[in-house]
Design a protein around this nucleic acid. Structure first.
Length: 437
RNA sequence: GGGGCAGUAGUUUAGCUCGGUCGAUGAUCGUGGACUGUCACUCCAUGGACCCGGGUUCAAAUCCCGGCUGCCUCGCCA
């Protein structure tokens, strides 16, 4: 047994290797008596091993192959019109590297759809289903593309602490943990640290990391732990500068995924629509008017609910051919205290949401950098002075105007691949009832 | 946190309204067998299940109560 000459299965179809050594697990055996077919799968793809009784050795032919077995196969690549994708392997040797000891506890083909909670219990096997594994091939490419974009634009990647001593911020609940006899919390966003980095002088920073939300939401778009793509930039004129970077980053990522994960997208049956060069930017007021025309009434300073997001998503797809829309100038009432207010209307802010296919994907905007105003706004939101004192302290030695945004990578992948539930886009989801595996 | 629905073999699904005909349906899967071009291989035989606890009743998968688990949905958010 020797893996040194092993090649990826996908290479069989893209080049003309003659003879190959491949290894993988058995996806299916079709036994026709004097002729057997083994579908062998590795990360790169699937190939058929053909076993005609008269053309292979009796040792190879008589092995009892089963779904899940790990095989090492050496053989000749032969063309055959009735083989999947036109090629198959006629083996000269087959090693059973590891024999399966039990049948799969879940269905990993598409004959039967096992419920997502059972699939998650056995996620490592679920991922043998290519329509599942390709989601994470795409996610990997998405994360890399964002990093690459930011790196090319001279952003500094930083890594902030996820264990924090105080639990201020936006209002989402935090997980409390024990910290050597004291209380500490899991970070619900890197917001304060992003701003700290700008005040330090790094000007453009980003972080892709975990955030924790202790909310008992039972929906198809919420997780208690997810990965946030956060960036923050200094010396901006207003929130439009943030939108511009965000749109560029997402367009870069879409393009990259479209080119480099074409096979995965094809297997998942996903086509990435070309987006307009400039995504629509609609003010809160404009959105309310649009929604009213569609028969959806909202209060003047009320946040968009799930239904409103959906209606708006359909509207911009129809009118602008865009999957994305910026909902700009959010009401102060529904934004955290560090959001900068509009100069001409104190009820509105210089902040936005980005909606993707009718679902909130990103929140961003310009932040208040003037310490005294920030302090006043914290008070307005009901914070006690000492609760926000250490945060506001950041701003007292000179803070540049700045802004940024946070995007959930799982939501991005969910919407990109049209997945019905965000858990499909999270390797090991954490929700109010699940902490395993 | 609110509302709704559900839990039947390893997986999936019928049966539940109207209790007995259930010794529980079909698929997939397992086991044994047949088959030389399958591609959800096919065919024959066979194996395996009523979430847990309590109650009503002559009789409970089916009705009632409690628990646990899951799904959908609203709020909130990314």
């Amino acid at each position: 047994m020797d893996f040194k000459d092993r090649t990826q299965i996908a290479n069989i179809f893209t080049s003309d290797p003659g003879t190959v050594t491949i290894a993988g697990w058995v996806q299916q055996v079709r036994n026709l008596g004097g002729l057997k077919f083994i579908q062998l799968q590795d990360r790169s793809g699937l190939v058929q091993i053909v076993l005609p009784k008269k053309k292979v050795s009796p040792e190879i032919f008589t092995i009892d192959y089963q779904e899940g077995d790990i095989l090492l196969v050496q053989g000749k690549v032969v063309s055959n019109n009735s083989a999947p994708k036109g090629k198959e392997i006629l083996p000269s040797t087959i090693n059973v590297v590891n024999k399966r000891q039990q049948e799969y506890p879940i269905a990993i083909d598409d004959k039967i759809n096992t419920n997502i909670d059972k699939r998650l219990d056995y996620r490592y096997l679920d991922l043998r289903n290519r329509s599942v594994s390709q989601i994470f091939e795409v996610e990997s490419a998405v994360a890399y593309a964002f990093q690459e974009f930011f790196y090319k634009k001279n952003f500094l990647q930083f890594f902030s602490s996820k264990i924090v001593g105080s639990a201020t911020e936006s209002g989402a609940n935090v997980f409390e943990i024990g910290y050597f006899g004291r209380k500490a919390y899991l970070a619900q966003s890197p917001q304060f640290y992003k701003q700290m980095m700008l005040i330090s002088g790094f000007e453009k920073v980003f972080e892709i990391g975990p955030v924790f939300r202790a909310e008992k939401h039972h929906t198809s778009r919420h997780l208690c732990e997810y990965t946030s793509i956060d960036f923050e930039i200094a010396y901006i004129n207003d929130q439009r500068d943030v939108m511009k970077v965000l749109q560029e980053a997402i367009m870069y990522t879409l393009d990259k995924v479209r080119k480099e994960k074409a096979d995965s997208l094809e297997e998942l049956g996903v086509v990435i629509d070309m987006q307009p060069k400039q995504w629509p930017i609609l003010s809160h007021q404009e959105i309310h008017e649009i929604l009213e025309n569609e028969g959806k009434e909202l209060g003047e300073y009320e946040d968009l609910d799930a239904e409103a997001e959906k209606i708006l998503g359909e509207y911009v797809k129809e009118k602008y051919k865009s999957d994305f829309v910026f909902a700009d100038e959010y009401p102060w009432e529904v934004r955290p205290f560090y959001t900068m207010k509009k100069e001409d209307n104190n009820n509105l802010t210089k902040s936005f949401d980005l909606l993707y296919k009718g679902q909130e994907l990103t929140t961003g905007g310009q932040r208040e950098h003037r310490a005294d105003i920030l302090e006043k706004q914290a008070e307005e939101k009901g914070f006690k002075k000492e609760e926000v004192a250490s945060y506001i302290q950041f701003f007292r030695n000179g803070a540049p105007p700045h802004g940024g945004s946070g995007t959930g990578i799982e939501r991005f992948v969910q919407k990109l691949l049209n997945l019905p539930n965000i858990r499909e886009a999270r390797l090991l989801p954490r929700d109010p009832t699940r902490v395993h595996p």
